[in-house]
Design a protein around this nucleic acid. Structure first.
Lengths: 206, 206
DNA sequence: CCCAAAACTACCCAAAGGGGTAAAGGATAC
DNA sequence: GTATCCTTTACCCCTTTGGGTAGTTTTGGG
């Protein structure tokens, strides 16, 4: 599985250093660009899987601006590249939620590890946004725990199923499902499917 | 805002090196431990805000095991510490979704930046898990955009309100709300509150 | 000024959901 | 073996939703 990387760095030597280093591994360099304009062009016409952003691009905040645009429009992971760790810059940078931070001079090992994790975590992010609900986690937070059967039912409610669909799937009567759901509402202190779904997600979130 | 860091590293010299380095900045070292058992004890009795984990703790996979437990029980951010970048180890490590990766020898600047970002991104995570639904984002992904009023209604449905509650809050008749919701179901291709809520979250997630 | 879109309202009907009560069969733990 | 919990089912009743049709009022642009 190739990972296409866009490098946005205004010092050609460093850019090429990174590029050749990446090419010797599991990465493909989709492009190397030197300013914001070209970066946006690349993002639109030849979107990569990950972006390496010089944070002080062309002496300004272009790197952080690009980060903002990536977050808004492309939702791609990116890592910042910088030669020093300036506190106020870092503060701005943090707000853009980079997947990582590479401080020059960097080691190849550190570079690969950071990029691998950035790509991998991003790929996992969707799954995290909709966590599979887990009986252990939910019961750990309830005084009255859900029984196994109740949890089966609650999962299906969470998936947007109706009582009838749930009854069919579990080979029992709708009345049974209604009874279970009544108990579930009691235990979770909810009173409708909508609030139940929100409650489950809140419980899973931590 | 102090950040409490637990250091799990079996080489005392390195552990202390990191500890003293952190103490000179905005971090507090909650404890330094040398094995899994002590690490779990600390997590339970003196939970930190972030964990630095030696990946090859005591020559084995203890670091990765601890990571698994952190994910299951504590949902804290953690970064791996390693002296080399071994591909198979990295693969296992990636599955635990570390917030970052510190490769020895590390620079102070790189260390701080990685930790800052780890803590910050983790703090933002809840907000990401329950994104405020945004009309702009949702309409950007629909062929038939929601009108302003429809969006007001949809937000309240998302919050688990009933039609009656929504009508009261917006000072209109329930019939009006029902009309709006009918149109919303049409535009979002849903057919119940449950599926509608899931759909909204899916739209916001990317 | 007029048109179109959006907002609002009503009424009807069928389906789904929520809450109360009751009870039977099974498993398990003490 | 008895007490307890879980699972299952039923029935009743009322509320909420979803979908269809249809109409008026408001509002923003051309």
């Amino acid at each position: 599985m190739e990972v296409r990387v866009l490098i946005v760095e205004d010092e050609p030597l460093i850019a090429e250093d990174i590029a050749s280093s990446l090419r010797n591994n599991d990465f493909t360099v989709s492009a190397v660009v030197y300013d914001k304009e070209d970066a946006l062009m690349e993002l639109k016409n030849n979107p990569p899987d990950l972006v390496i952003l010089d944070i002080n691009l062309n002496g300004g905040d272009e790197g952080i601006e690009i980060a903002g645009i990536i977050n808004e429009k492309y939702q791609l992971p990116f890592v910042y590249l910088t030669s020093y760790s300036d506190k106020s810059t870092l503060l701005h940078a943090k707000n853009t939620q980079p997947a990582g931070y590479i401080v020059k001079p960097f080691s190849d090992a550190g570079l690969y590890a950071t990029l691998e994790i950035a790509v991998y975590n991003h790929a996992q992010k969707n799954k995290q946004l909709f966590p599979e609900i887990s009986q252990a986690i939910i019961n750990g937070k309830l005084t009255a725990p859900l029984s196994d059967r109740e949890f089966e039912v609650v999962k299906l409610v969470h998936d947007g199923k109706t009582n009838n669909q749930i009854a069919e799937q579990l080979f029992v009567s709708v009345n049974t499902i209604k009874a279970h759901i009544k108990n579930i509402h009691l235990k979770l202190d909810t009173d409708s499917r909508s609030t139940l779904i929100r409650r489950l997600q809140a419980l899973m979130a931590r």
